[in-house]
Design a protein around this nucleic acid. Structure first.
Lengths: 225, 225
DNA sequence: AGTCAAATAGTTTTCGAAAACTCTGCGATC
DNA sequence: GATCGCAGAGTTTTCGAAAACTATTTGACT
């Protein structure tokens, strides 16, 4: 009985959902910008209904806002929300890491080490515009942080932490470029890695919290100099 | 310029969303049961598209699962998930309470006291079936716990805690009726209230965590009488 | 000129049907 | 007798158009 496991034929709605989501997270759709159906139908080559379903999902997730009869927009960003988000991440993302360190198996350790290895060897800055991070690095960075959390055996906490991380991505994209070159980001990542695979929960959590806060602080302080 | 503020004319999708959500949370739709479009169209008197949008939102929220081409079902419950959910609530709901106690204003205190007052005077057990809680009590209970959290000024944390509470509602409905009459639930609620309005954060959080765990323990231990 | 109201244009929301797919039951084949 | 494949029935998915609504422009009136 070869039950030909379903070759994952994603529905059109799922594809549009992923595409719009990626466009928002990658900054191709600016916060607050309208998501008119006419344009989206043109862009994604599908009917209005499909678009609506995708946008409803994104709205439930908080990446998109909807006002009855006025359509959908990319969610706005605000300083207050960034502060809330940062506090929430420092509590919940750190919590997920704690669970990962307590319950993660050897496979998890391996994946974290691998993700870090990859991150370490990816050029941090965009050669074309050295004030910005390179796309490759942003990707590797996200995957490293996700790998850290993925050892968390509590799916509820893991899902929450992942969602918060995604939201933070928006702010990373839409805040002023960081000129915080004094900061040794690579060193921070290595320190977190060492503490995590060394199962030093207290230290790893403290390092991660500091790491998260430092980025927000850099975004919030005006570019003085 | 009397801008006649919009009298909240909820769209059909929003109404169906609320209705299905309420049906799931109230236990009128059993976990794992199919959500066929034919039936839902009949029940809610609207087109398939409207139903689909509502179900997509519920799916994103985790109250409903969807398999491509196989339709939607009410999410399944499991022991592992109940344990995860309980741990997550003990961490995150308690976190929200901590924020509420730290930042909640006098209005919050008032609403908590009011909600508790109402809960205290609502008959706990259903007169018709004294083994089950009365609907009124379940409602008042939920509103009291929500009021406790509502003082949390961090919207990200508050939203997360609220979502976890909603999920827990499912388990409360679908687990064996509690015969744990030894437990002084009213006393627990009063103790939490006193600690919260007394701004004794440590004590309030500990009490809430114990309160949450006790319910789960009662659900998980077999009814050994 | 300025203001208000009606008509117009553009969007969102909802619907019903066509297309695509899965499941069930029957019959032929080994 | 059991298994496989095929036809029919039932569902889900997608679409295009009609209905409902909002925003904008135009034109008349003070």
């Amino acid at each position: 009985m070869t039950t030909q496991l379903p070759i994952e034929a994603p529905s059109r709605t799922a594809r549009v959902y992923e595409a719009v989501r990626a466009d928002i997270l990658a900054g191709r759709l600016a916060p607050g910008s309208r998501l008119g159906f006419a344009g989206l139908v043109e862009t994604y080559k599908c009917s209005i209904g499909v678009i609506r379903e995708a946008l409803q999902r994104l709205a439930e997730q908080g990446l998109v806002t909807s006002a009855p009869k006025l359509g959908f927009r990319v969610v706005e960003i605000s300083e207050k929300d960034l502060v809330d988000l940062t506090d929430a991440r420092c509590e919940i993302e750190v919590l997920a890491l704690k669970y990962a360190i307590a319950g993660g198996d050897l496979g998890w350790e391996g994946r974290v080490v691998a993700a870090h290895h990859r991150l370490e060897r990816t050029p941090q800055y965009d050669p074309a515009d050295p004030a910005r991070f390179s796309d490759d690095w942003v990707l590797a960075h996200g995957e490293y942080h996700q790998a850290l959390l993925d050892g968390c055996t509590n799916n509820r906490i893991l899902a929450t932490a992942t969602m918060l991380r995604d939201s933070a991505e928006l702010y990373r994209r839409w805040s002023a470029p960081l000129h915080d070159r004094d900061r040794d980001i690579a060193g921070e990542h290595r320190a977190i890695l060492d503490a995590a695979v060394g199962r030093d929960s207290g230290r790893a959590c403290e390092l991660l919290c500091t790491h998260i806060r430092r980025t927000t602080d850099a975004l919030l302080t005006p570019p003085s100099s």
